[in-house]
């Protein structure tokens, strides 16, 4: 029995040696991230809850992203409108411009662009902050001070990122649509009431709700990746830089992956 077990272990070891290093790293990181995510749920559901730190993180995460998200959304809405206008004009459906732009923003561009900005701004910030706290022993100091650092630092940030991104996306959608209204009025004239009528005539629940659901997953991905890379960072200040960088790259990739899966699901459910 023992001989058979050691034979299996030996063949597993041989197999492991044959797996390319990058694949092994990918598998290890994926496993680490999955375990880390599981810990967020188990720790997050147990009291005591760090309510004041969670509210502080909500304020910081939401407030810090607001100027960048707002500016980008405004420009995005305006540019999209200006660029789409000639094409719609050539088909004689210029009047559909408000709805087409709004639909594109609400369904896809708003959530994805805001998610990517959020990953760049908040994901890297969380990765760098926790990474720096890790290498300067602040996380250990927190533990010595009678605090569960995972609950205080990780659970609060992941939850705040998960809840703040949908709110930011709603805000960015509204700002982008305002940008679109201004874009329309640069080369033509349309009243605000006509503009909103054109949008809400066609826009319904299935245009707004499914994209909003996926933004919770975007927010969770940004929060969990930033925290994971920061909390587990090593190798001093170089490690902090790597954590910040990897947080953005991995979270951005996850946003696209979740987006792809979300589109397939909404298609299957007949929401597209």
């Amino acid at each position: 029995m023992v001989g058979k077990a050691s034979e299996i272990i030996s063949s597993l070891q041989t197999l492991t040696l044959k797996i390319p290093k990058q694949t092994m790293t990918f598998l290890q990181e994926s496993g680490g991230l999955a375990r880390f995510s599981g810990r967020v749920f188990t720790e997050g559901l147990r009291p005591p809850f760090e309510l004041s730190e969670f509210l502080r993180q909500c304020y910081l995460i939401g407030n810090k992203s607001l100027p960048l998200v707002g500016t980008t959304a405004f420009i995005m809405g305006m540019v999209l409108t200006i660029q789409l206008r000639p094409a719609l004009l050539s088909y004689g459906v210029e009047s559909e411009l408000p709805y087409i732009v709004a639909d594109a923003i609400i369904r896809e561009i708003g959530p994805v662009i805001t998610g990517l900005i959020f990953a760049g701004k908040i994901g890297s910030g969380i990765g760098a902050e926790l990474g720096s706290m890790n290498v300067t022993e602040q996380i250990d100091a927190m533990e010595v001070s009678g605090t569960n650092p995972f609950r205080y630092l990780v659970v609060t940030r992941v939850l705040a990122a998960t809840l703040m991104l949908p709110l930011l996306v709603l805000l960015s959608d509204a700002i982008a649509i305002t940008g679109s209204f201004i874009g329309i009025n640069i080369k033509g004239v349309m009243s605000f009431s006509l503009f909103t009528d054109e949008i809400f005539q066609f826009l319904d629940f299935t245009d707004v709700f499914p994209p909003l659901i996926k933004t919770f997953f975007f927010g969770f991905s940004v929060g969990i990746v930033g925290c994971y890379k920061g909390y587990t960072s090593s190798r001093g200040t170089e490690g902090v830089g790597r954590s910040a960088n990897a947080s953005v790259v991995i979270a951005s990739m996850l946003i696209f992956l979740i987006d792809l899966i979300a589109v397939q699901i909404t298609d299957l459910l007949g929401f597209n």
Partner: peptide
């Protein structure tokens, strides 16, 4: 009490 080598003061 524990005095850390890097002081470990919370930056924020």
């Amino acid at each position: 009490g524990f005095l850390f080598q890097s002081n470990a003061l919370y930056d924020s």
